[in-house]
Amino acid sequence: MAHGSQREQHLTQDLPLPQISRDNAEFYAAAARGELRFQRCTPCRRFRHYPRPACPYCLSRDFTWELSSGRGTVYTWTIVRGPTLPAFQDKLPYNVVDVLLDEGVHFQSEVLDCAPEEIHAGMPVEAVFVPVTDEITLVKFRRQA
């Protein structure tokens, strides 16, 4: 078999999705309800993302899952022009952004309904929720009204 066809045969076709675990289950359960929630340290009150079992600032194991305002600004961004995975091929070119949320955490996502040339650092955005499967809802963003 030619190398080229070997390659095509093994490409990941489906959209890769998060695997639910004990660490992340609360995050995705909240997203499915249309809520953006992050872990927040009980003693030092700081938010954190990604989910983890201790506070990176004060080492406390105590935390709650608190509602985020969902509002923030674009900290950095790219426009993916390809190559990319087949699951994203039809939407090329598309943006990926790092949003600095008002709670102080960074979150990678996409700004919906925004042309590539309009994305810029400091752009105010707010969270929206896009269900993909019964279990997984992806958190996306749109420009603040």
Binding site: L11, T12, P16, L17, P18, Q19, S21, N24, L85, F88
Partner: peptide
């Protein structure tokens, strides 16, 4: 990266599904 799993247990679960592959 062209042969990534479609169920992601690691930290790449936070950006790969957003298109950052």
């Amino acid at each position: 990266w062209e042969k990534l799993a479609t169920s992601l247990p690691g930290l790449n679960q936070w950006h790969v599904p957003q298109g950052l592959v």
